[in-house]
Amino acid sequence: MAAPKKTVAKESGQEKAGSPPEFSKEQEFKALRDMLLIRRFEEKAGQLYGMGAIGGFCHLYIGQEAVVVGMQMALKQGDEVITGYRDHGHMLACDMEAKGVMAELTGRRGGYSRGKGGSMHMFSKEKHFYGGHGIVGAQVSLGTGLAFANHYRGNDNVSVTYFGDGAANQGQVYESFNMAELWKLPVIYVIENNRYAMGTSVSRASAQQDFSKRGASFNIPGRQVDGMDVRAVKAAADEATAWCRGGNGPMILEMQTYRYRGHSMSDPAKYRTREEVEKVRHDQDPIEQVRNRLLASGVSEQDLKAIDAEVREIVNEAADFAQHDPEPDPSELYTDIYR
């Protein structure tokens, strides 16, 4: 299986020449810090899972950080974000607190869902994060509904609806595409193509492997984006948000990315070689790309270490909180069923 292609944004398969626009130093620092936070958080979550502090399913986002960080850099206050079950990175990118996310992973009362949702089901109305959904593809119709609400209210918010290459084969995705284009709903469908739907590679599951073309029969424009380059993601997101806010309806962004870890913690990942993973890590790691650019521009190792230290402190504090916060009160069993 080929590693994700190193391409810049291209229009439905057609290569466009050139690199993505350069980031300012400030943008590079922000991207680095936000991606590092996700990576360190996920590494810690993996550790806690191994210790038995986190139960059930736990799907790590390591390797895909540039997608959600680059997208978020193009959004404005009020834009909604919704995704599937590989959702910790999206929550952190939406500025949800690491403590609340980690405490939900450990099933504690300080978690975002008060311990009743777990890894796959977290929400923050305040941060416009609409979950965290455990049924593959369900968030696509829901995210289309968020866009419907924006359209109904006549605001200029955009719904950013994430799903994977696996979910892209679900029927309701296409039902949603049809309605979104028919009604010109402001929704960006971000297909995070990490090459594997659990253990099934794209080539074994998808007749049309160019996901940017998946909206073609509905006249939804699509772009293939190098999802390992945060600048390319941001550039594509800028185009898509402008398209949606301009009343043109939905747009599809296929993010060509890669997950380094297994599908979930219990996945031995026998369906790909160690060499394949190592090659992507070595050649395309989204965080290393930014670090290398910053170093090349004269930023010192010392400055970068300071960011790493800040991030580690946030993550350690979150892990500490998540292990010491009490479990939900038993009375919580019967709350939040009706309102």
């Binding site: 909604e80 919704i82 609409y130 369900a138 696509v140 119709s141 829901l142 995210g143 289309t144 509904g145 968020l146 866009a147 419907f148 609400a149 924006n150 109904y152 029927g171 309701q172 039902e175 949603s176 049809n178 309605m179 028919l182």
Partner: peptide, 18 residues
Amino acid sequence: TPITEHGFAGVGVGAAMA
């Protein structure tokens, strides 16, 4: 709506969440 029960039910729920 189009004849698309799964899809429009989800769109309705999403709109309600909003």
